[in-house]
Amino acid sequence: MSVRKLPHRPEAPADKPPVTPDAAATAEDQGQTVATLPARGLAPRLAHAFAAPRAQRAALIPYLTGGHPDLQTSDRLIATLIDAGADIVELGIPFSDPIADGPVVQQSTHAALSAGITPDDVLGLAAAHSAAAPFVLLTYLNSVLAFGAERFFTRAATAGVEALVIPDLPLDEAAGRTVSLAREAGGLAALAAGAGVSLVPMATPTSTDERLELVAAAATSFVYCVAVTGVTGARAEVGAELPALLARLRQRTDAPLAVGFGISTAEQAAGVAGLADGVIIGSALIDAVTRAASPDDACAAARSLVSAASEAIAGG
């Protein structure tokens, strides 16, 4: 499979009309906390993947840093994940200052940046594989802003990406209080929705009930549930705080709940799958890729981790 190396920051594709998200035009800078968003249904392929993964089990969502360890290997790794049982693929856009990430993801993003990987490369990887699986991208906000938010969302949609996780964009900032970032559109979430991309709200063990109400109202594809109070990275134990968080969310929304941060073993994945609609495995996978001696080894390690998790989830 070949990955098209995209030119440096090309202009927005002309085949998409300018984005005018009527639904959210009412949001005021300082007024409403959450702008009116289109109802769920923004991300049909994700919805399907959560509703009907292969054996009526939780969706398996492996996470990789896009372009790590290099563009060609990353391309092979994505194909491997899909082949080994991934229901949804999540790719990270490398950013210089990933404050929500622990050492393993940090190292992979710095390696990818040193190798010259750009947001365009990661969008290209998604475009090359999104026919085979639904795609979610994780990006820090500054990558979106520098690209031009509207252009970024449009490009993501064109690449077949249905949802974006932006860890440093909490939902009230996404909803329109950010004066100059997306004022006319009523906020970044509305701007993204207008382009056909869902911004995924995050829920954490520290979220108050009041915040979870906002999370529920902002969920247009799924909710990203952070299993631990902390940054990404493997944990010996996941989620003493998780069942309570999931229960509090279930009371407020029927949106799919995907759980990430700290899930590293097949056993942990199976445990979380019993509670949630999706299981995200990131650092453990990236660690295996980082340690591999060759691209072949990296693919073999990724395959064995994903198949093991897939089987454990199906069995559990």
Partner: peptide, 20 residues
């Protein structure tokens, strides 16, 4: 919380309750 367009609270959700 804002100075013209600048400022805001662009941090992970985990920190929002602490900032509140």
């Amino acid at each position: 919380t804002r100075f013209g367009p600048y400022g805001g609270r662009f941090v992970p959700e985990t920190l929002i309750p602490a900032l509140d």
